[in-house]
Amino acid sequence: MLKKRIVPCLDIADGRTVKGVNFHDLIDAGDPVLLAQKYSDLGADELVFLDITATVEKRPTLIRLVEQISAVINIPFSVGGGISTVEQTRELISAGADKVTINSAAVSRPELISELTSQFGSQCIITAVDYKMIDGVARVHTHGGRRATDLRLQDWSQQLVDLGAGELLLTSMDHDGTKQGYDLEILAQIDALCAVPVIASGGAGTVEHFADLFAQTAVSAALAASIFHFGEIEIPDLKAQLKQRNIAIR
């Protein structure tokens, strides 16, 4: 049976792991290479590595860091942040990344997704979508959540899948950093709409939040950052407790 994935996210700024609350107020959370190794050893199923400053500063993602991480871990990981070309993607995959995460660039130029999937296969391409509720509508935001768009989350998610995206990483900006639980309603809705795996992101604070996510939605993975970085939940303990609740966990 296919297992539900527990996915620590390493937000990177200037080569360090950071974590913010509602996309602001960044706190240093450690050396990404050491954290990657620790999570891999503890049983994380996959790692997501996002250079959250790359889009804004228009600089390429840190290839060197990807090489270092790839050398120490033996689980899959994706890299994102500021990726807007086939060439950048090729560099990251050559550096050892298994997948890339595309966010703002897909909004500016949707055909990028089909260019990437025709080169690398859709399984290499995660499309990340940050969204926020505005007047009761989930609206897509870009540039690390700084820029609102007119896109509705439902329409955009569907379009990304049609373009060939292999996976959707959905982050609720309203839930992110609050530790009040995942955005179950929207996640269930988008997951039902889209025939690709969905990674839920934003709001994990307790073991219950993971259990609720997997019990109440069919998403394939749960992403979290701060609770892992600051040791509030240990991955082996989380996985053991989810297994006890009959959730398919490695």
Partner: peptide
């Protein structure tokens, strides 16, 4: 009638 790709850990 399931997600494609088959992605993740399986036995």
């Amino acid at each position: 009638q399931m997600d494609v790709p088959h992605m993740g850990w399986n036995n």
